[in-house]
């Protein structure tokens, strides 16, 4: 699993540019599902056929990143955000473009930290002037964080854990689930970071009876951390609420029951902000009972997102436990 996490988190894929992630996941799932297709938005949908009701799992493939808005005559790139960043944390970070061009983000050395915004930051790709820069990247090109993903015992650190770690959980589950009473759709969605866009269209097409998002959630266990219940290493987190969804009581209780019956370590999560694909899925058509399995993650939306492998394994077990039960019994 460590190898898969390293490979998938190091692949390029800011929102709207997820095709390299699609290729990696398709290769992993080959032979484990009945059909796979990519829809109009670029969502990868892997279908494991079953006789019962439809359950849709969704983990997003896209990562936060940046987009070039302007090229200065000296060859520096001005940029805007794709998804949520804290601009004052970006100075000194490295980024990579789809074609492999690497740059680093910086600003004038006199800029005070509280003034650091996109209008003060630039990307230096080493071009000697505008013409050379334009031969390397174009306005509208996207880039993402450029880092190596590392393992420190059971803890892994890297960018794009949000939400490739959710993709890893679905891949592992799909590889292990040989049959189910349910009709399972594993959706690897696009453009979550810019507004749950891929989940919205994929849920409309699939029209599942139950929706489950898998995504990271911040923890409250760091020094002077927020008053949040979730701790890294304390197991899978079953979401009660965030800003995008209040988990359907039936789905939340289903997850708790499965975790307790299978001795899966879990914690309950209430998040005061944030959102996941479940926010889009549950409002599809006449409404779909939905919930979220959260992966505890420190430093979400930084280049060093940290997850615990035991938590990840607990999430895989929870997915497997859920699909083993006929969801018709839960929904009636």
């Amino acid at each position: 699993m460590k190898d898969l996490i390293k490979r998938i988190t190091e692949v390029f894929g800011p929102s709207g540019q997820e095709s390299k992630v699609v290729e990696l996941i398709k290769a992993e799932l080959e032979g484990h599902v009945d059909e796979m297709y990519v829809d109009i938005m670029g969502n990868l949908i892997a279908h494991k056929k079953g006789p019962g009701k439809k359950i849709m799992f969704s983990a997003h493939m896209d990562e936060i990143g940046f987009m070039v808005t302007h090229i200065e005559k000296e060859g520096y790139l001005r940029f805007t955000n794709i998804g949520g960043h804290r601009p004052w944390t970006l100075k000194g970070l490295r980024v990579i473009f789809d074609n492999g061009v690497i740059g680093n983000i910086d600003c004038h050395s006199d800029t005070k930290p509280n003034e650091l915004n996109y209008d003060k930051l630039f990307i230096d790709i080493g071009a000697k002037d505008k013409a050379e820069a334009e031969s390397m990247v174009k306005i509208g090109d996207s880039c993402g964080f450029y880092n190596s993903t590392l393992a420190n015992g059971q803890r892994m650190i890297g960018n794009s854990m949000d939400d490739r770690i959710g993709c890893v959980i679905l891949i592992e589950a799909a590889q292990q689930v040989k049959s189910s009473p349910n009709d399972i759709y594993y959706v690897f969605s696009v453009q979550e970071e810019v507004g749950l866009r891929g989940a919205k269209t994929s849920a409309y097409r699939i029209h599942p009876d139950m929706g489950v998002a898998l995504d990271v959630t911040p923890t409250g266990d760091t020094p002077e951390g927020a008053k949040l219940n979730v701790k890294l290493g304390d197991g899978t987190a079953i979401k009660v609420k965030d800003a995008s969804v209040i988990a359907h009581p039936l789905v939340k209780n289903f997850m708790i029951d499965v975790a307790e019956k299978n001795n899966i370590k879990y914690q309950l999560e209430v998040l005061t902000a944030g959102g996941t694909d479940a926010g889009a899925i549950h409002l599809t058509k006449e409404g779909i009972p939905s919930g979220t399995i959260s992966i505890p993650c420190r430093y979400v939306h930084s280049p060093s997102e940290m997850v615990d492998l035991n938590d990840v394994k607990a999430c895989v077990e929870l997915v497997k436990g859920m699909v083993a039960i006929d969801i018709a019994q839960i929904l009636d």
């Binding site: 409250g220 949040l228 609420k241 209430v270």
Partner: peptide
């Protein structure tokens, strides 16, 4: 909504 159970049993809350 209960956000966190503190030491000594105090309940931290968030709003719905």
């Amino acid at each position: 909504m209960v956000l966190k159970i503190e030491e000594k049993g105090f309940l931290r809350v968030t709003s719905v």
